[in-house]
């Protein structure tokens, strides 16, 4: 009896809730826990019905070599202190993976991220407010190919994902005229999947995420931080778009922090 009563109440509540919530609350997105990303013994990552497989990373992504700067060698020989010398380093991260849904392969993703670090303290030149001259190149690009429709090749591009510049950390997913924008932000999101018989599924928490926006409407999000990682997806998202977003979310989960 109590369950029927609770069910009736919750249905009435969920239908009326959307109009009452603040701008950064996205309680219609359903959460899925991401498992395996922090476990060195697990090679694949799972969330909801999705699972990655065949994650491959280039050796150059693991062993980064800084670029030799002759200017810094000369400054070293002249006894100029380290802090006047600029940081000039190149890092990259190249990886690929397949994504499966309920055991069936749905997409293949190849990704390349680069960070050319070019930073110098401005002691003698007119300095900006941060004292640094920062000319970094921080770029990520990926190609997502859906298996069930060979015409669906999505391009993914993002800038400043390492947060090395004073700019938003954002990117774009594009195919033909469809564009999905993603950006690092904080959002109020549901803690548990909606269970219409469990009142505690109303609980929500604030999370730092990459939000995915299609036509000015947030349709998905993935946690920025590695601890308690979650993926949120709107229930009514088109299945093909959901597969693309799940692949993009995996790129953002698997990418390495290149700023050192």
């Amino acid at each position: 009896m109590k369950q029927i009563y609770l069910l009736t109440c919750l249905i009435a509540f969920y239908t009326a809730l959307a109009a009452q919530t603040p701008a950064n609350a996205y309680l219609s997105l359903q959460p899925y826990e991401i498992k395996g990303h922090n476990n060195p013994l697990k090679l694949n990552i799972t969330f909801g019905n999705y699972k990655t497989r065949y994650i491959k990373r280039s050796l150059g992504s693991i062993f980064n070599f800084g670029r030799v700067s002759f200017e810094n060698i000369l400054l070293d020989m002249a006894g100029v202190p380290d802090y006047v010398q600029g940081t000039n380093q190149r890092n990259k991260d190249i990886f690929s993976f397949d994504l499966t849904e309920n055991g069936e392969a749905i997409s293949n993703t190849r990704c390349r991220a680069i960070l050319h670090q070019n930073e110098r303290v401005r002691l003698l030149l007119p300095s900006d407010s941060s004292f640094f001259s920062i000319n970094n190149v921080d770029f990520l690009q990926a190609v997502i190919m859906l298996h069930n429709d060979s015409s669906q090749v999505w391009q993914m591009a993002a800038s400043n994902l390492n947060g090395s510049m004073n700019e938003p950390q954002k990117g774009l997913l594009r195919h033909d005229t469809t564009s999905i924008v993603f950006e690092k932000t904080t959002m109020l999101l549901r803690e548990k999947a909606v269970d219409r018989t469990d009142v505690s599924s109303l609980l929500a928490t604030m999370n730092m995420v990459y939000s995915f926006t299609l036509n000015n409407k947030v349709i998905a999000a993935v946690s920025y931080k590695d601890t308690e990682k979650r993926f949120w997806l709107h229930e009514k998202t088109d299945p093909k778009l959901a597969q693309v977003i799940a692949s993009a979310a995996m790129v953002l989960t698997l990418r390495r922090q290149l700023y050192q």
Binding site: Y5, L6, T8, C9, L10, A12, F13, A16, L17, T21, P22, A25, T186, L188, E191, V199, S200, L202, L203, A204, T205, M206, N207, M208
Partner: peptide, 26 residues
Amino acid sequence: QYSFSAAILPLKVKEDAPWQLVLYNN
């Protein structure tokens, strides 16, 4: 990011929707 959330369910014979409390600061 701090958030506090609560679900309040009045236990009544008459049907009444639960209340959701959200408080956050960022």
